[in-house]
Amino acid sequence: MLTLNLADFSLEHFMACYWQQQPLVIRQGFQDFEDPINANDLAGLAMEEAVQSRLIFKKGDKWQAESGPFESYKRFGKTDWSLVVQAVNHYSPEVAELVKPFAFIPKWRFDDVMVSYATPGGGVGPHIDLYDVFICQGSGRRRWRVGDIGNHKQFAAHAALLHTEPFEAIIDVELLPGDILYIPPGFPHDGVTLESSLSFSVGFRAKSGCDMLSGLADHVIDKDLGKTLLADPKRPIAHQQGRIDTSDLTLIRANIQNLLDNEALMADFAGSYFSATKCALDLQALDDPLDTADMLAQLQDQPLIRTGGLRCFYVDATIDQGVCYVDGERYAFGADLAASLMALCDHDEITANLLAPALNHPEFARQLTDWVNAGYWYFND
């Protein structure tokens, strides 16, 4: 198992002084690091329809970007291009291992592991990300420049590429295998490959208020909630027909605030919203589905492993009722199963002991069997 090596300070110091505040180079954050996937296998993934991938290069002085799947890479030559593949942790258990060293940040904040292969001179151009990222250098070398946060002008270098204007670097570093560069949202950065290399970017979501309000609206509509009408009995006579006065605005705000103050509603929204995956899961449904008895018997002998990228959470406001959220859906099993559901969500690998006493609960046992048959959890035969 990979271990994050912070030689000069503690995780507590990192979270207090760097997380979402300033970029940081972590030399040999992964000691004796070996690529969890090679360039050929990454290129093969980018040939698949279900996998999100892009190839970024320059034609003359103009940036270009193409979306996969790709049939061949020969036309791009041996220099000045990058292949970027999203959510590789969904498809490669070895790449998924890169997530575990960052378990000091909760999974609901995690997004995916993006993997980039670049030839000498390759990069994606200077840009600003709206999420936190740990860029883990694999084989090869890349030079990274990071600027300070500020009012940087951005422009479309291509329809699929948002770049930022030149910036003064506060970090200018060459990353070697095992080095990690942490970049919070808003800091401009630019990486250029010095020799053919692989980079593994462990990204963490940063949702805007607009995103979450949109998600909440969808949740309320889907669940047929929020039907309480705005009411104003004993309203005084209006003398200005076109006016929304202060008391009116308070009434409007209160009607919306009632939704936000509904703890159960917000718990279900947060659990469902953040457990939904951005990219498709690589689910391997069983050709010969197990029945519940067979699944429980097999679980006594070997653990179940969560498939890469599957998101499952619990919320303090509803876990005491035995509620959890798996891949965007709400499941309620009763208060007696709260501890087992916490174990299910907290661990990537679950044993029969961790799930006791839930395995004696018929509804949970049936649901776990359905999840296993669908490929959400699997036995590593």
Rank of each mutant, 00 (worst) to 15 (best):
F379L: 00
D190L: 12
Q241E: 15
V202G: 02
D172C: 03
G226I: 11
L355N: 00
T79H: 11
V133W: 00
D218Q: 11
V88H: 02
I319C: 13
L344V: 03
D172Q: 03
P93R: 05
L176V: 14
P357R: 03
A87L: 01
L355Q: 03
S82T: 14
A238T: 12
R145K: 13
S199I: 02
V88A: 04
Q31D: 06
A159G: 10
L368K: 02
D218V: 11
F57V: 03
S72T: 10
W81Q: 10
R311K: 15
I183F: 05
A169C: 06
L251N: 14
D61G: 12
L181W: 02
V95A: 02
L249I: 14
V51M: 08
V115P: 00
D211T: 06
N373K: 07
C210W: 12
F76G: 01
T250Y: 14
H152N: 11
F110E: 01
T277E: 14
D148W: 00
L259K: 06
M295E: 06
D41K: 10
K100F: 12
H189R: 13
D112R: 03
L213Y: 12
G203N: 04
Q321W: 02
G226P: 09
T318Q: 01
F70S: 05
K207G: 08
S214Y: 14
S272N: 08
D261W: 10
N38W: 07
V326E: 00
A297C: 14
Y376E: 11
D320T: 12
H239V: 15
A293M: 12
T292F: 07
M47R: 14
A285G: 11
I319Q: 13
Q367A: 11
H219V: 07
F269W: 15
E34Y: 02
G29R: 04
P166D: 08
T79Y: 08
G191I: 02
G44W: 13
L304F: 07
A96E: 13
V124I: 09
I149Y: 06
A159S: 13
A16N: 09
D381T: 08
D268S: 08
A254T: 09
C345M: 09
H163P: 03
T351A: 07
Y182T: 06
Y182H: 11
R143S: 04
A39Y: 04
N258R: 15
V146A: 00
H127F: 07
A43E: 04
H219G: 10
T292H: 05
I135M: 03
Q302C: 04
W371G: 11
K58C: 07
R311L: 08
F9L: 05
L181T: 04
Q154N: 05
G309W: 13
M342Q: 13
Y325A: 04
A317I: 02
S214P: 00
Y117E: 07
A270H: 06
K59C: 09
A87G: 01
N5T: 07
G328H: 09
A43L: 09
K207Q: 15
